[in-house]
């Protein structure tokens, strides 16, 4: 690990400061700052088209940051190639086309680890979290139900032993029972393994049941941040997110 930059204000696992990015001349994410400690879950809320997914893609390195910094355990990773970020324990779960439909469940999981032999040792975690995935090992991922595909997604992130998980709308289109299961797994992962999790969500009940803190993104800017447990939360959310 390079850079012994242990911040005084508690060591942040992921620290984003003044981050702006977009497509060509269009700026979609404007001057966004936040940090997440190990074992903490931050949820970014906001309506469609407000720049939530763009923010995740910028952190992961898919979209060039126009300015600002992204630090992982104190070292700068802004604009580093996505595959290098992935190898250094950033697990990114995109909203669309997130699994390889034409590959088997096993192959999808193998792609979560850097070497095939690591998968065997880590399958225990998958079995514990989502027994059904272990059973469907040889099945083509595209034949899984929507909920099972989401489980596969999380399983793939789990076997990669991430330090940070970036998750884009995992709850979309899921039954309530499945949403609860996802929330459980995310909470235990962050608590037990000290993973910092950044969620992007539109599903409020899910977001509030899983996250420690929230931030509201509006037209690319964070307009509000706070603790989920705080008394004002409900009122703040109502003000910003009502339909």
């Amino acid at each position: 690990m390079s850079g012994v930059t242990n911040q005084s204000a508690g060591e942040a696992r992921l620290q984003v400061a003044g981050l702006s990015s977009g497509y060509g001349p269009v700026t979609v994410v404007r001057d966004v700052s936040f940090s997440i400690a190990p074992g903490e879950i931050l949820v970014i809320l906001g309506k469609n088209g407000m720049g939530k997914s763009t923010l995740l893609k910028t952190i992961m390195g898919f979209i060039r940051a126009k300015s600002g910094s992204v630090r992982l355990d104190g070292s700068e990773i802004a604009n580093r190639a996505p595959h290098l970020n992935a190898r250094e324990a950033l697990a990114y779960t995109p909203q669309e086309y997130a699994i390889f439909q034409d590959l088997t469940v096993e192959e999808n999981l193998r792609l979560g680890v850097t070497e095939d032999r690591l998968l065997g040792a880590r399958m225990g975690e998958v079995e514990a979290a989502f027994p059904v995935i272990a059973k469907r090992f040889k099945q083509r991922a595209g034949t899984l139900s929507g909920g099972e595909q989401k489980m596969l997604l999380l399983s793939r992130s789990l076997v990669s032993r991430p330090k940070i998980m970036l998750i884009d709308e995992i709850s979309e289109g899921l039954q309530p029972s499945m949403v609860n299961r996802m929330a459980q797994v995310l909470r235990s992962t962050s608590a037990e393994k000290g993973v910092a999790i950044l969620l992007v969500e539109q599903n409020l009940p899910f977001a509030l049941s899983v996250a420690d803190r929230y931030a509201i993104l509006k037209i690319g800017e964070i307009v509000e941040q706070g603790d989920v447990a705080h008394a004002d939360t409900a009122a703040t959310l109502e003000r910003h997110l009502r339909i």
Partner: peptide
């Protein structure tokens, strides 16, 4: 095969 099917997803998984 992962690169053929979805290059960005593959990169996001460390390939």
């Amino acid at each position: 095969r992962a690169v053929i099917m979805n290059e960005n997803l593959a990169r996001g998984l460390g390939i």
